[in-house]
Design a protein around this nucleic acid. Sequence first.
DNA 1: CTTACCATGTAAGGCGTTACATGATTCA
DNA 2: TGAATCATGTAACGCCTTACATGGTAAG
Lengths: 181, 181
Amino acid sequence: MATEKKIDYVILGLLSHEDLTGYEIKKRMDTTLKYFWGASYGSIYPALGDLVERGLATKRDGAENGRNKLIYSITEEGRSCLKAWLALPVEKDELRYETLLKLFFGKDGGEEQAIDHINAFQEKVKMEMSCLLEAEKTLKSVLDMDETHKYYLLTVEFGIKTYEAYLAWCKEAKEMLGPSK
Amino acid sequence: MATEKKIDYVILGLLSHEDLTGYEIKKRMDTTLKYFWGASYGSIYPALGDLVERGLATKRDGAENGRNKLIYSITEEGRSCLKAWLALPVEKDELRYETLLKLFFGKDGGEEQAIDHINAFQEKVKMEMSCLLEAEKTLKSVLDMDETHKYYLLTVEFGIKTYEAYLAWCKEAKEMLGPSK
DNA sequence: CTTACCATGTAAGGCGTTACATGATTCA
DNA sequence: TGAATCATGTAACGCCTTACATGGTAAG
């Protein structure tokens, strides 16, 4: 029960829903989880190895027609480990927005530059928003099929609500900066 | 013009507004900047040393009645370095919310636990919200005294808007989880 | 007198990204 | 046949946090 890193729990969490390969885990990270957690191969594969070594997951060969494939499953110990972590209070919620940093020091760059940064931010948010809206529609339509969907939807709703706030802020912020334009 | 780390620019940004000691920089990080950027002494002091070495800042002795004090100032090269960075597009805006992670895997912990996490999140947000509201009032009252205040206010407004969204989400999320209670 | 705050810094170690290395298959 | 995708992994390196080490001053 040593202090596992977050990445371990993320993987355990994913494996608690379905068996996955390292590659598939990475895909989940890049799509579903990317809004609030990220990870690279360089942290996923070593973590998987550790998990197996500690008996929290098992690895089996799942090669299909010559294609290399290692499928990981969660063990009972893995499940209790995950459950124990879920019961612990949250340690840290962290936001690191370079956009806000550049805006905070924005006077040194001038109004136009600040507006450029806001516009870029707005575009990115709009783009991701449409993905979230997609996900919301899908999840709502299959909500009763699996209990996990409710929890996924919760996080999607979080994203939608905050992105709406971001978009409203973008508009206001630009008005505050360039009242003449 | 090597690739400086973000911490360098944060310090440069702070120094562009006023001369500061390492200790004071850390305080700024823990109060004003903590909403979107954090740093510890272990990164601040070495960074200050580097900045001086590269001619982007200068260090002078500012000891007061026997109290140790090293005051840092930004140089002209430091200012251009900061400006150049401000002009560059934002590389990454990153959010790492353990709360969302625990919620995403929330089914394994059960509804009550999920609600507990949301409540804890809500409390934290409420607390920080009142600080932001304070800051907003103050900044608005001194808005015309310094051009930088407008930019500070921009980031505060960002915080207020997103925290409002968070709070609205907390309410909705709890309704979604415990419709019977 | 003791707690809190002012003040500076280092060392060890953890964590994770980036880049590299390799190779098969599917699709256009 | 070439590009994209599937698939697994390692090594180097960078960055940062935690904990430690030290010492003065102000306030209660």
